[in-house]
């Protein structure tokens, strides 16, 4: 049987566009608010709302542990979650390259529906464009999301304080490592799956434990190291990490050792960094360790008033050294 492909006609707005939308998108995104009208009519959130958008161009579009569809939902759901907002509505916009296989698009849409469902978020509007061959690579997706901020929660990267404990919700660097391996330009194989996951339920469980939390940040592009430097700068504090306490998957460690990479600078797509007062940290970790995506959560360091705007690590020999600041040489197109 011949493989069905996306054609320019699918993007022309006529009958074929309608067919594509019905057969692939509508059949998967089963929201009552997703109609044929030009805009979705919705009830606004109560209290404060969070609003965010993100574009996804990951290459390859499919990788161990997920695909660009799942990633595009997780990314926006997690951005909202980081602000203590329950994700409510999402919009999705596709730019598809002419010739992209329909069955791959179907697979992407299925992953999106499943992930949105898990995160409890509704896809309420969408858009599809087809670009000529070579004008985009495969498929690019943009998602925009609205969430309702939980009452009593006040989070910001500028709120880290002297004495805070720093927690990661899981082991670090798996997404970056999985993408790197699936490009196979290094000739390496290892069993590493992306950590890509929607984390609203994880974050909710933490906020249900205590609202006394200062910062939650998604450690995506640039990884945990980059995020920590951002927060150290934003909050004008020093960050001290205990290298031995940072959870890293053995396979990721192995790959990093071989390529001379630091897992602290590999992207995560299902791991967050949390800053909270030290006396709350144990309870938070205990809650996290019971969660589906946060079994490996751990306290990895603390905040001080010295070494302002820097990240210091305790090394394997018990000395302290600076974590070299992010160099900007990140892997391209990981999300």
């Amino acid at each position: 049987m011949e493989e069905k492909l996306v054609t320019l006609a699918h993007g022309a707005g006529g009958k074929q566009t309608a067919e594509l939308i019905d057969s692939i998108f509508k059949s998967n995104f089963k929201s009552k608010n997703l109609t044929a009208d030009d805009a979705a009519i919705l009830n606004p959130p109560i209290g404060k709302m969070a609003f965010t958008t993100d574009g996804f161009i990951v290459s390859p579009f499919k990788f161990p542990g997920g695909n660009i569809g799942k990633l595009s939902i997780c990314g926006t759901v997690n951005d909202l979650s980081c602000m203590g907002a329950k994700p409510m509505y999402l919009t999705v916009a596709f730019v598809i390259e002419e010739g992209f296989p329909l069955k791959d698009l179907e697979e992407i849409a299925q992953a999106m529906a499943k992930t949105a469902d898990e995160a409890g978020v509704e896809i309420v509007a969408g858009d599809t464009k087809v670009a000529g061959k070579g004008q985009v690579d495969g498929v690019f997706i943009t998602t925009t999301g609205v969430g309702q901020i939980m009452e009593g929660v006040d989070l910001s990267g500028a709120k880290a304080k002297d004495g805070d404990a720093i927690i990661t919700t899981g082991d670090i660097g798996r997404h970056g490592c999985a993408i790197l391996l699936s490009r196979d330009s290094y000739g390496l194989t290892a069993d590493v799956k992306s950590d890509c996951a929607p984390l609203w339920n994880t974050i909710k469980s933490v906020l249900d434990t205590t609202k006394d939390i200062h910062v939650i940040r998604d450690a995506t592009r640039g990884g945990v190291g980059t995020v920590l430097y951002e927060i150290a700068e934003q909050s004008q504090v020093g960050i001290h990490l205990d290298y031995a306490a940072i959870p890293v998957d053995d396979a990721v460690k192995g790959v990093c050792g071989m390529l001379g990479l630091d897992p602290l600078y590999l992207a995560c797509e299902g791991t967050m960094v949390i800053f909270a007062p030290n006396d709350k940290a144990q309870a938070i970790v205990k809650t996290l360790n019971k969660g589906k995506y946060s079994k490996k959560a751990a306290i990895i360091g603390h905040v001080t008033n010295d070494m302002i705007a820097h990240v210091v690590v305790k090394t394997e020999i018990g000395t302290e050294t600076l974590l070299p600041a992010p160099s900007g040489e990140l892997l391209p197109r990981i999300c």
Binding site: T315, E316, I317, T319, E320, T321
Partner: peptide, 9 residues
Amino acid sequence: IFKLGIRNI
């Protein structure tokens, strides 16, 4: 040597 923080001791 830097990575291990040896200079600092």
